[in-house]
Amino acid sequence: MMPFPSTIRLVVAQTKYQLLTFWRIPVAMFFTVGLPLVMLVLFNALFGDSTIDTPDGSWSSRQFYTAGLAAFTAVSATYTNLANMVPLRRDEGVLKRWRGTPLPTWTYLCGFILSAVIIAFVGVTLLLTLGVVAYDLDIDLAKMPAAFVTFGIGVGAFAALGMALASLVKSASSAAAAANATILPLAFVSNVFIQLDDPPRWIEIVGDIFPLKPFVEAFQDCFTPFVEAPAFNWASLAFVAVWGAAGLGVALWKFTWEPSGSAPRRSRSRRAETV
């Protein structure tokens, strides 16, 4: 009797398959990778050469919003993407179909998560490259190790949180809504799009409770001139990691493969409907 295909081969095949899926859903591509690029172009047109004044001198605000948008891209590719796609596959009955095959179930989820991380990496790289090439973004090589580590912890945590949301929400359409309803308002209070000076106290608190702001700030630290190399923001990273661990716990506890009774079996809803 022939042996099973090796685990590595299965994981690679699954990751390739998820990447190809993503590639073939233009809406998902646009919202995850394209939109941040468009926003970078817009931000540069709107705030181009504005500066941020601090007691230590003034710095181009581009260093903030480019890093903020990059962090947000990483979150879209993992959290939003998984919270959209996994429930969609569950509603369609695709998850149930896979569970009936000899593919180890964790391999399937692994493909989902790895592909999300790769998309995040490509999205962030594209965004930073556009920043450097078109808009004089300063990159300090001494801080890049910190940027990598921050990226790694961030995508891990937000992938886990995306899976947690996918596990908690029953149907694909409500999952898409929930993903956007959680991440978009949070982005405004988390220094993604705008650097808030002196925000109301409650906004600051909301930003500090959730993991988006710590992640964005840790990533921005790797690009702002305030922070000296190597720019590891361990406190924020630990906070993000704890959220990620909690997300993983919820996902492991609540994940289901069966479509929920009320959900349409061959749902065609895509994230576009709710964005």
Partner: peptide
Amino acid sequence: LQSSGIEREFTVREVIELYGGCYRE
């Protein structure tokens, strides 16, 4: 199954190879 979806974004050949790829034979 009585009803379950297949990845709509893939071709017939692709899904057969994808699903087939996890069996021994």
